[in-house]
Structure formats: structure tokens, C-alpha cells
């Protein structure tokens, strides 16, 4: 790209806010009532992390893997990529995240969600934001209720819940598992910012809080 310094963030925005939020409306209408199942899956993940029953790591990893694969296919690839050609290159990253989670869950020693340090404790409120706060955002920002972003259906709350849960995780693959959700939230936050959407700070805040929690953990060592 020549004269790259002359480009603003807005120059990369290919669609209008109305078209963007209509994507969620159409996706929600097509997915309903799967939302009930994905929200129940999210609640189950949080309870599994809190209770740590035997085999919890495998279940958490597999549920998250299934939902990343589903969101990557049903929303990013099948809908969002139609209005943003760059998403055709991003959607496979959600598939890769699903694969990494599945490998992490199935590997010997696998994933355990057993860390209760400061970062691990910060993970719970982050997960609650993705699970509970996100579906309520249309009320806060004056959008139609039908455009709600729900965990396991929409990418932002799915990435945020994953980050919250991963902050409590230990296992060989854990550092790798942060990359894709963090990069996604950065991309999503910048997109919303370019749209002039008041919600833009939320994905950026979630990603920033996660990075800060990881930094605190490193400092505390």
C-alpha cells in the first residue's frame, strides 16, 4: 500500500454501522433458539472452572473449541466475510483456535483451570462480562434487542469468555491460546471505533484487562 501514512482507520471500513448490526440481527434470527444452549454452555464452563470436578479441563476445552468453530463458521465465514473480505482470512483463525483448544484439552496433562492467583481471579469478572453483560448491551446503547451479541453465537463475547476462563488455566498450550482471542478483540474494537460506535472501548478494555492480568502474574512470580 503506497502512501500508507495518508490512510485513516476509517478508510479501511467497508460497510456502514447499520449493515454491521443487521448482521447480528439476521444471525440471531437464523440461530435462535441456539442461544439458550450456548448460554447454558457458558454457565457450565464457569461452574466447571469454579468447581474443578475431575475431567473439567477436557470439558471446558471441548465446549470452547466447539463454540469457536461454530462462531468462526456461522458468523465470520458465512455472514461477516460477505461485507468484509478481510474476514475470510480471519475466520480460519477461529478454526485454528478450536483446534488448539481441542488439542490442549485432549493432550496428556491437558488443560487444568486451577490457577487462583490474581490473574485467575480477574478472569471470572471478565467471563461474566462476555456471558451476562454483552447480551444486554443493546439496551445500553439504544440498538434493537434483536442485534444482541450472545456468547457462542457472536465472536466478541465468545472471545471474552475464553480469555476470562484461560486466565485460570494451566498447561503447555495456554500461552498460545490467548493470541487469537486477543487479536480478534483488538480488530473488533478498532472496527467499532472506525464506525464511531460507543461500544468500541469494551472489547479493547477486555483485551487490555487480560494483558494487564497476565503482566501482573508475571510480576508476582
Amino acid at each position: 500500500m503506497s502512501e500508507w501514512w495518508t490512510y485513516r482507520l476509517e478508510d479501511f471500513l467497508l460497510f456502514s454501522p447499520r449493515v454491521y448490526w443487521r448482521l447480528f440481527e439476521l444471525n440471531n434470527a437464523a440461530s435462535w433458539p441456539l442461544h439458550l444452549l450456548t448460554l447454558a454452555a457458558g454457565l457450565a464452563i464457569v461452574l466447571l472452572v469454579l468447581g474443578r470436578p475431575p475431567g473439567h479441563g477436557l470439558w471446558v476445552a471441548f465446549i470452547l473449541a466447539a463454540l469457536f468453530a461454530f462462531v468462526g463458521w456461522s458468523f465470520l465465514w458465512s455472514r461477516y466475510a460477505a461485507i468484509n473480505w478481510a474476514i475470510a482470512y480471519v475466520a480460519p483463525a477461529f478454526g485454528l483456535q478450536a483446534l488448539l483448544l481441542a488439542i490442549g484439552g485432549a493432550a496428556r496433562g491437558g488443560l487444568a483451570f486451577d490457577r487462583r492467583d490474581i490473574a485467575g481471579r480477574l478472569g471470572l469478572p471478565i467471563a461474566v462480562v462476555g456471558l451476562v453483560v454483552y447480551p444486554l448491551l443493546p439496551l445500553l446503547f439504544g440498538r434493537p434487542w434483536s442485534s444482541a451479541e450472545v456468547f457462542g453465537i457472536a465472536p466478541d463475547p465468545t472471545a471474552i469468555v475464553a480469555l476470562g476462563v484461560l486466565l485460570a488455566a494451566s498447561g503447555g498450550l495456554v500461552p498460545l491460546l490467548f493470541a487469537i482471542p486477543l487479536l480478534w478483540l483488538l480488530l473488533s474494537g478498532l472496527t467499532l471505533h472506525a464506525m464511531g460506535d460507543p461500544q468500541a472501548w469494551l472489547p479493547l478494555l477486555a483485551a487490555g484487562t487480560t494483558v494487564a492480568a497476565l503482566a501482573l502474574r508475571r510480576i508476582a512470580r
Binding site: 471500513l13 443487521r22 448482521l23 455472514r79 461485507i83
Partner: peptide
């Protein structure tokens, strides 16, 4: 530019 990029949305 932007205005016609409405994807598969039948209404739009």
C-alpha cells in the same frame, strides 16, 4: 462504496 456493501441482507 460502502452504501451497496450490504451482504446477503434481503431487506437492504
Amino acid at each position: 462504496w460502502i452504501t451497496f456493501n450490504v451482504g446477503d441482507d434481503p431487506v437492504l
